[in-house]
């Protein structure tokens, strides 16, 4: 790997440019490396989005077109949105999506508000019991939800929260992760930010709402996105807590769609596309907040 010097390189024979052999060899190597890099990227690209694209292609194929067999027909010959209409006719997908949206937006609102309130108290106030409170939030991050779901169901039932959207939302309404992310963000704020307000005699709430909260908008956005995606994608808890079909969220409803309503792959594919496309759009529009959230969540969580 150390042979960057290639004396026999043709350019070296050129008397006017004696210093060029190294850069040329390097350039060739870099070009080869770059091509290899793009080939690898293309391969991983095919592996990661290939499944989505195949599902999309299937969903657009007409009833007369082949969806299986060899060689696979990659593109629909006569693309049609017919199966999307069929999904809407056979399954109350829009109703399920509406339920998911209510739960997800509720979760965003409560995680942002309650999470930042708690995070603010933990970061900017000193009081007895602060360690205990922080410990409780940390405990909620360590205890796997799966290990308490049976009791969670019993608690929800005794509060008459099973089969309600509020019941689906509330266990994740102020997650430990949201509280800790907000706490860390408030901690990074310099003390001077609030000092002027203290001198003006502003109360705690005003300082929190008017000064501290607007200063941590970036983290707030990450918390909002995390909460939305987590809630929209959650499967186990809605599956456990909902038995009334009219309350199904999209994940439970779409699982129910396959096998129960239809065995036509084109229709199932259309249904999955309807569930995933809004999220992909949201993701591509707000990428940097997603990545920021991952960085902060993984390092501190």
């Amino acid at each position: 790997m150390t042979t960057l010097q290639t004396p026999q390189a043709p350019v070296a024979a050129d008397p006017r440019r004696p210093a060029t052999p190294v850069p040329t060899a390097r350039r060739v190597r870099t070009a080869a490396g770059l091509t290899g890099r793009y080939l690898l990227l293309a391969l991983v690209f095919a592996l990661t989005v290939g499944p989505f694209l195949w599902q999309l292609s299937t969903s657009l194929k007409g009833n007369g077109e082949r969806v299986f067999g060899y060689p696979p027909q990659l593109l629909p010959a006569h693309p049609t949105l017919h199966h999307y209409a069929e999904v809407l006719d056979t399954v109350p997908v829009l109703h399920y999506a509406g339920n998911s949206l209510v739960v997800a937006l509720g979760s965003v609102l409560s995680n942002c508000l309650l999470g930042s309130m708690a995070g603010y108290a933990l970061a900017r106030m000193t009081f007895r019991g602060r360690g205990l409170a922080a410990g409780i939030f940390l405990a909620t991050m360590i205890i796997p939800f799966e290990s308490i779901m049976v009791s969670e169901f019993l608690v929800a039932r005794s509060l008459h929260l099973t089969d309600t959207l509020l019941g689906v939302m509330i266990p994740g309404a102020a997650s430990g992760l949201s509280v800790m992310l907000m706490r860390n963000a408030f901690r990074r704020l310099p003390a001077e930010v609030e000092e002027a307000a203290v001198l003006d005699g502003a109360g705690e709430w005003t300082r929190f709402w008017r000064i501290a909260l607007p200063s941590v908008r970036g983290t707030l956005a990450a918390v909002a996105i995390f909460s939305f995606v987590f809630s929209w994608d959650d499967f186990l808890w809605p599956l456990v807590s909902l038995s009334d079909q009219s309350k199904y969220t999209l994940t439970v409803g779409i699982q129910y769609l396959s096998g129960t309503f239809t065995n036509d792959q084109r229709v199932i594919a259309a249904g999955t596309m309807m569930a995933v496309v809004p999220l992909l759009v949201l993701f591509f529009a707000l990428q940097r907040f997603f990545f920021r959230g991952v960085g902060e969540g993984a390092v501190k969580g």
């Binding site: 990227l41 991983v44 690209f45 990661t48 989005v49 499944p51 989505f52 195949w54 599902q55 299937t58 995606v229 929209w232 994608d233 959650d234 499967f235 994940t251 439970v252 779409i254 699982q255 396959s258 792959q265 199932i268 594919a269 249904g271 999955t272 569930a275 995933v276 999220l279 992909l280 949201l282 993701f283 591509f284 990428q287 997603f290 990545f291």
Partner: peptide, 22 residues
């Protein structure tokens, strides 16, 4: 490429499951 490689993370496990079972 980075964004595209991340996209399966965004999909729910149910959606991934249906795509993969197909």
């Amino acid at each position: 490429f980075r964004a595209v490689f991340y996209s399966p993370v965004v999909a729910s496990m149910v959606v991934a499951g249906l795509i993969w079972s197909w």
